[in-house]
């Protein structure tokens, strides 16, 4: 199942970060599995330890299965100043999870992240590839409910 991804790249270490991005994006549970690491290691001829070193270093990767929608709420000072803490509390209450956990239905995972570069619209978050800014309690409820309805 990874051959399609491997075909896009030459087997050089510099492509590791892209290959991991692609594998994670194509996984229904938004993570890089042990099996995938094994295959990447064989393809690039680099040790598994190196791949785990990279995977756990960067915040965009996960080695644990995640929900279909990964929510990344910014906790940097500009968003913090604009009330991101309150948003986080509400988000966790709404979904009944703690930071880093996935909802029982497998729909959402809540994560915190550093500055997303949209501080003009703080507080902000990303859900998968979409950016949401100027968050309020009402807005948050609507965003989450919209995704639930579509699922």
């Amino acid at each position: 199942m990874y051959e399609k991804i491997f075909k896009k790249y030459s087997p050089e270490k510099e492509n590791l970060i892209y290959i991991l991005h692609d594998i994670q994006d194509s996984d229904p549970q938004n993570y890089v599995s042990e099996d995938a690491v094994q295959k990447v290691s064989e393809f690039l001829r680099i040790p598994i330890s190196h791949i785990y070193g990279v995977l756990t270093f960067y915040t965009m990767y996960s080695t644990k299965p995640r929900g279909k929608n990964v929510i990344r709420l910014c906790e940097s000072p500009p968003c913090f100043l604009k009330g991101s803490e309150k948003i986080l509390i509400q988000l966790c209450e709404m979904l009944n999870v703690k930071v880093g956990e996935t909802t029982e239905d497998g729909l959402f995972t809540v994560e915190l992240c550093a500055c997303l570069g949209i501080c003009g619209n703080a507080p902000a978050m990303m859900i998968n590839e979409d950016v949401y800014g100027d968050l309020t309690d009402e807005k948050l409820i609507k965003i989450i409910n919209d995704i639930k309805r579509r699922a």
């Binding site: 940097s76 000072p77 500009p78 550093a114 500055c115 570069g117 949209i118 501080c119 003009g120």
Partner: peptide, 11 residues
């Protein structure tokens, strides 16, 4: 790799 909190000029 614009990551400094509060910075989005390069974007």
């Amino acid at each position: 790799d614009e990551g400094e909190p509060g910075t989005f000029k390069d974007r």
